[in-house]
Simulated scan of single mutants.
Amino acid sequence: MNGLQRAYLKFEQRFGVNELPPRAQVFMAHHPVGTGTLVGVVTGAVLAWALSAFDDPGLLFQAALVGLGMGLFIWLSCRVERWRQAQYARLEQAPSSPPAPVVSNPDPPWFGAALWICVWVIGTAFLWLVSRLSGTPNVWLSSASIAALATVSAWGARVVKRRWRK
Results as ranks from 00 to 15, higher is better:
66 V>D: 01
98 P>V: 02
85 Q>M: 12
114 A>H: 04
129 L>R: 05
148 A>H: 01
31 H>R: 11
18 N>F: 12
31 H>W: 07
15 F>R: 14
32 P>D: 07
100 A>Q: 01
59 L>I: 06
54 F>Y: 12
70 M>W: 12
45 A>I: 04
87 Q>H: 04
38 L>Q: 06
155 W>C: 08
123 G>P: 01
4 L>M: 09
25 Q>K: 07
20 L>D: 00
27 F>E: 11
96 S>M: 03
111 F>D: 05
12 E>T: 09
32 P>R: 10
115 L>Q: 11
103 V>N: 00
132 R>H: 11
79 R>K: 06
12 E>P: 00
165 R>G: 13
154 A>C: 04
5 Q>V: 03
1 M>Q: 08
28 M>F: 12
165 R>A: 14
23 R>Y: 05
136 T>N: 07
64 A>Q: 13
48 A>R: 08
9 L>M: 05
52 S>Q: 13
78 C>E: 14
126 F>C: 09
116 W>V: 01
14 R>W: 15
66 V>H: 03
119 V>C: 08
86 A>W: 13
132 R>C: 06
5 Q>W: 15
46 V>A: 14
41 V>N: 01
164 W>D: 04
102 V>R: 12
35 T>R: 08
126 F>S: 08
10 K>S: 15
156 G>Q: 06
39 V>Q: 07
64 A>C: 06
88 Y>E: 03
78 C>I: 05
114 A>M: 08
128 W>Y: 15
17 V>L: 13
45 A>P: 00
136 T>W: 06
62 Q>C: 06
115 L>M: 01
71 G>L: 00
83 W>P: 02
64 A>G: 10
45 A>S: 07
78 C>R: 10
84 R>N: 05
163 R>K: 06
142 S>E: 03
104 S>N: 07
96 S>Y: 13
117 I>M: 08
22 P>T: 07
81 E>V: 01
126 F>L: 12
74 I>H: 03
138 N>A: 15
65 L>E: 15
57 P>I: 03
104 S>P: 00
101 P>F: 02
127 L>T: 00
52 S>P: 01
143 S>N: 13
12 E>Y: 08
